[in-house]
Design a protein around this nucleic acid. Structure first.
Lengths: 325, 325
DNA sequence: TTGAAAGCGCTAACAT
DNA sequence: ATGTTAGCGCTTTCAA
C-alpha cells in the first residue's frame, strides 16, 4: 500500500480509501491510484485488515461430512448466502467425532470467524461459552446444542416426519412396521424413533427395531432376524438416506413395502420407486445462514428455534400392500 | 497475550514461546503460562500471527460445485490431507463460471493462502501469473490450465476411459453407439468425445453424438431423434454421472445397452444395473493435495502432469446385447 | 532460559 | 479532499 501511494504520489491513507471504496476521494486521484494498483499488481493483505478492523468477513461451518449429499447440499446453500454477504466460508467435517468438532470450532475461533454454523457431533458445547461471550453468533443446524447452551437452532421435524411415514404405511394396511436407523445417541435418529413409536402406539414391538451403524452385514443380519420372526414385518421404515440404500441392497430384490427418511437421487428410478420423507438440506442451510447474518446485523432477540417441515413423496415402495396371508 | 504474560508474571515473548511450543522454556514456567491461558480463555489471534509471520497455514480450493458428488468426494480428500498438515481449507464453488473462479482465486490470494488447488471453469489463467511469481504453488485438478501456464496437474484418463467404454460395447456386438455428453468446451467432455471417436474409428457417425447441458428435455429430444434414425443406436455412452442419470430417466425403462462415465451410488441397484467407467475423486483430491504440499516443502522440480487411470465396472447395462434385427 | 524492542500492513481517529 | 499518527496482536531479532 505504501508502494502504491508512492507510485501514485499520494498518501497511504488515500490508497486505503480507494481500495475500500470510501467516499471523499477526487475521481482523478482515485484513477491514478487504481492505475498504480494495477501496475504494481497490488492486492490488499486481508490479515492486516482483519487485525486492525477486527472484522474477518469469514463464517465457519462445521458439518459431519462434505461427501454426504445432505451436508454437501447444506454447504452449498450456506456458501451461497455467505458469498452474497461478501464473506468467505471456512468449512470442515467432524466425521461425527466430538473431539474433531471441537478442534474445528477452536481453529475457526482462532481465525476470528465472524460467526459459526455447526452440525454438532458431540453433546457438550459448554466450550462455546467463552466465544459466545465475546459476541460471536453461533447457529446450530440439524441437531440441537447440548444442555447449557441456548442459541439459534434450525432442525427438521424429525419425529413428525417419522410419524408421517408410519401413518402412511398403516394407511396401506401394514401392522408390522420395522424401523432401521442410526444409533439413538444421534439426535435425529432418536427423534425419528420417537415419532415412529408414537405413531405406532400399541403396535410398537421392540423386536422390529434395529439401530446401529448402516453397514451392510449388520443390517442384513437384522433383517434376516426380523423376517424369521413368527410375525415378520410387512413394511420397513428406514431412518436416513444411507440406511435406505443399505436396506435396499440387503433386501436384494425382495419386494417389501418401504418408506425412507431423506430423499435421494434415483429414488424414482429404482423398482419399485422408493417413497421417501424428504428434508430440504438447501433450505436448512439457507435458513441457518440467514439467521446468522441477522445476528451479525445486531439482532439480539431471544434465540430462535426453527423446525422445518418435511413432506412425504409417494413413489411406489411405500404403497405396496402387505402380502396376502 | 499481554494479559496472559502479566497474569503468569512473565514476558510476552515467553507466552509466545509456550503457545508455539518453542523450546527453551522452563517446564514450570510453561505450566504457569498454560494455567494463565486456561484461566483467561486466551486463544491466539491468527490474523496477527499471519501478518507477522507471513504463513497462513491455509489452502484454497476452487471446485465447480460442492453439491456434486464428484467434487464433494474430491473436497473431502483434499480436506483430509490439508488437515493432516495442520492447515485449514478455504473452499468455494465456481458454478462453472470463469468470472466466479477468478473472484474466488483473488479472494483466496488476498487472504494469502499458502497454496491453491483448482478445478478451472475458464480457460484463461494468465491472471495467476502474479501469484505464481510470488511463489504460491498452484495445482490444477480434473482439468488442465489454459495456455501460458504450466503447473502441477492431476487429470483423469478421460479419452482412455471413453475408449474403454466404447470398446466394451463394441465387444458386445454393438456397432451403433451414441454419445451424450457436456458441451465440448468443457475439457473433460472434449476428451471423452475424442476417446469415443478414436475407439469407434470408421463407425463414427456424428448423428449419434449430442452434446449440451444435461437437462431432461433436450436429452429426451436428442434421444428421440436418434431412435427415429433409419439406423438407430443400440447402445449409449454417457459422458458423466449427471448425464447417465438424465439419460436413464429419459429412457423411461426402455432397455438399451449403456455405459456411463463416472460411477455413482445405486448404479448396482437399478435394473439393469449400470455399467460405468469409474474415476476416483478421492484419489484425485489426495494426489493434488500431496503434490501441493510437496511444493510447499520446497520441491522446485518441473511441473508434474499426472493422469489417473479409470476402470470399467460391468454391472449389466453395458453387457446387454443389441436387439435382434 | 528469558526479555525488550521493532515492525508486519493495514484502518481509526484525528488533523489539515 | 487529503494527510499524519497510533496501534491492532503477534513474531522476529537481538540482547541479557
Amino acid at each position: 500500500m505504501k508502494d502504491v501511494a508512492t507510485a501514485a504520489g499520494v498518501a497511504l491513507k488515500t490508497v486505503s480509501r480507494v481500495v475500500n471504496g470510501e467516499p471523499g476521494v477526487h475521481p482523478a486521484t482515485a484513477e491514478r491510484v487504481r492505475a498504480a494498483i494495477d501496475r504494481l499488481g497490488y492486492s490488499r493483505n486481508e490479515s492486516a485488515r482483519v487485525l486492525r478492523s477486527g472484522r474477518t468477513a469469514t463464517i465457519g461451518l462445521v458439518i459431519e461430512d462434505v461427501a454426504d449429499p445432505f451436508y454437501s447440499g447444506l454447504s452449498r446453500a450456506v456458501e451461497g448466502v455467505v458469498i452474497g454477504h461478501g464473506c468467505l466460508l471456512l468449512s470442515g467435517s467432524s466425521g461425527e467425532e466430538p473431539g474433531r468438532e471441537r478442534e474445528l470450532v477452536e481453529t475457526f475461533c482462532a481465525r476470528r470467524v465472524d460467526g459459526l454454523i455447526m452440525v454438532p457431533a458431540g453433546d457438550d458445547h459448554t466450550y462455546l461459552w467463552a466465544e459466545l461471550e465475546t459476541g460471536t453468533p453461533v447457529v446450530f443446524a440439524d441437531r440441537p446444542p447440548g444442555s447449557g447452551i441456548d442459541v439459534d437452532t434450525v432442525l427438521t421435524d424429525n419425529a413428525g416426519g417419522a410419524a408421517l411415514a408410519v401413518r402412511h404405511l398403516l394407511g396401506h394396511g401394514h401392522h408390522r412396521i420395522a424401523f432401521l436407523g442410526d444409533d439413538p445417541e444421534i439426535y435425529t435418529a432418536a427423534e425419528r424413533l420417537r415419532g415412529y413409536r408414537a405413531a405406532l402406539g400399541g403396535l410398537f414391538d421392540e423386536r422390529l427395531v434395529w439401530m446401529g451403524p448402516p453397514s451392510p452385514d449388520p443390517v442384513r443380519a437384522a433383517l434376516d432376524g426380523m423376517f424369521t420372526l413368527e410375525s415378520p414385518p410387512t413394511a420397513l421404515f428406514t431412518g436416513n438416506g444411507r440406511y435406505t440404500v443399505t436396506t435396499l441392497r440387503a433386501l436384494a430384490g425382495r419386494r417389501v413395502a418401504l418408506v425412507g427418511f431423506d430423499d435421494f437421487e434415483l429414488a424414482d428410478l429404482l423398482d419399485p420407486a422408493v417413497s421417501t420423507v424428504a428434508q430440504d438440506p438447501s433450505w436448512m442451510g439457507r435458513v441457518a445462514a440467514e439467521l446468522l447474518f441477522r445476528r451479525l446485523r445486531g439482532d439480539t432477540g431471544r434465540p430462535e428455534h426453527i423446525e422445518l417441515p418435511v413432506r412425504l413423496i409417494p413413489r411406489g415402495s411405500g404403497e405396496l400392500p402387505p402380502p396376502p396371508r
